[in-house]
Amino acid sequence: MEFVMAIIIGILFMAAVYLILSRSLLRIILGTGLLSHGAHLLILTMGGLGGTSPPVLADGVTDYADPLPQALILTAIVISFGVTAFMLVLFYRTYGEHKTDNMSLMKGNDEHD
């Protein structure tokens, strides 16, 4: 199953990078969303997908799933929500100020560097 997961992660990263490189601001936001999903699954897969029961103590169970990646992902999920929300607002505020979402038009001009 790890093999399948690795391919899925690859596809997620690929789609994310493709979107991030595009000229439309909204696609960039979508791309970062996909990127964080890919990263979460990557962490999960790195730790291994074995384990027959969730990492919650129960009598007679010894084969728990790896709890550490799960804890890391849990924080990552919430952070990525915060980042997405922040970027979303940053994006539509930029759009509101500059009346464009074309990334190729958004560059610092020579007087401002």
Binding site: L44, G51, P54, P55, V56, Y64, Q70, I73, L74, I77
Partner: peptide
């Protein structure tokens, strides 16, 4: 869910 991570 499949990989036994209920919290996630």
């Amino acid at each position: 869910v499949i990989y036994k991570a209920p919290d996630l």
